[in-house]
């Protein structure tokens, strides 16, 4: 009887892990809580730094899943991992046996309404990066009453590097997301003035710094070093913001048509459930702690539990997919040893 591996989560990491396992001759089943594969990528329009349509990546991955014959269970949620990865319990109470589990359950988006000083879900023209992707997909960026915004402000690090909301970590990918979206707004509306308020710009990936520089020089996006302290609504439903331009050492005030909160990555809520299983530890941030940051990034302290993607830390799509491959190979090696 052939071995069977359960993949928790059908986002990019989970899909790639399953496909690679099948390639290695190991049966895998993806358990996805949503009604389709793709995870957060389903809600994205274009990808940094190349502006590749998200669909292009998603369709290719789905294609690979289909071709390889991976079993996919959608609208199905794992409630707990048991017996150190030899079984999982589903939300409906049933359980599935497995030879190993790859946890690829991803991250949660930081709920921007927790930063109540920015008025998300209170003021009409305060949005998040996720809302903006939806607008890009649905025909363009508009204010609530359907106008083309004349001024847009982006705020970096919403829910990142912020002790007040218990999010001390850097979410890494938001800097470049903000740069990408600022450029997209300028491409759509060249006359719109775009201001980006940031604390540090962390351009860690290939082509990121280049895109940042393009945003500055070619697209004339105003980067202001300083964090917005407060947003409020004006009488004409625009948003007044206060920040310090720390590079000149003066407080700054301006009114914009739209404020976009660049939300960070929060550890998946399910991580707490996974941590009930022996061998799964969490960082204080609630991201899952891999066995070894250098030599065992996709492994746990349990022999049959493996990790891929943002369950362990904020990552971009390429890194997450690569971890899917890495985790699959580790699983295959482990099962061969037994």
């Amino acid at each position: 009887m052939s071995k069977k591996v359960i993949i928790i989560g059908g986002g990019v990491a989970g899909m790639q892990a399953a496909v690679t396992l099948e390639e290695l001759g190991i049966r895998s089943v993806i358990i996805e809580k949503e009604d389709g594969l793709g995870g957060k990528l389903r809600r994205w329009d274009r990808l940094f730094p190349t502006m590749t349509p998200a669909e292009e990546v998603l369709d290719e991955l789905k294609d690979r899943v289909q071709r390889s014959g991976v079993e996919v269970m959608t609208s199905c949620e794992v409630s707990e991992i048991g017996c150190e990865g030899r079984m999982v319990t589903l939300k409906d109470g049933s359980s599935l046996e497995s030879d190993a589990v790859v946890v690829a359950s991803g991250f949660d988006l930081f709920p921007a309404e927790l930063k109540e000083e920015y008025g998300y879900k209170i003021y009409d023209n305060v949005f998040t990066t996720v809302d903006l992707e939806r607008m890009f997909r649905n025909g363009g960026v508009r204010t609530v009453d359907g106008r083309i915004p004349k001024t847009v402000a982006f705020l970096h690090c919403v829910g990142s590097r912020d002790e007040k909301v218990n999010q001390r970590h850097c979410s890494r990918v938001c800097c470049i997301t903000g740069v990408k979206q600022a450029i997209e707004i300028k491409q759509e509306h060249p006359d719109t003035e775009v201001y980006s308020f940031y604390m540090d710009m962390r351009m860690f990936g290939p082509g990121y710094e280049e895109l940042y520089r393009q945003a500055q020089q070619e697209f004339n996006i105003h980067f202001v070093r300083g964090r917005i302290s407060e947003a409020s609504q004006t009488i004409d439903h625009r948003i007044q913001i206060k920040a310090e331009d720390t590079l000149i050492g003066l407080p700054l005030k301006m009114t914009v048509d739209m404020l976009v909160l660049i939300v960070g990555m929060k550890a998946g809520e399910s991580n707490l459930r996974w941590s009930r299983c022996q061998g799964v530890d969490l960082y204080p941030s609630s991201f899952v702690k891999p066995k070894n940051l250098f030599l065992g990034g996709v492994e746990s302290d349990s022999k049959h539990i493996f990790y891929a993607g943002t369950v362990t830390a904020p990552k971009n799509i390429g890194e997450s997919i690569d971890e899917g491959i890495a985790a699959a190979h580790r699983v295959a090696q482990r099962l061969k040893e037994e």
């Binding site: 003066l250 700054l252 301006m254 009114t255």
Partner: peptide
């Protein structure tokens, strides 16, 4: 009254 209303020193982009 021996004092004036201090001018706001913030940068006002508006």
């Amino acid at each position: 009254w021996g004092y004036t209303i201090t001018r706001v020193r913030r940068v006002d982009i508006d």
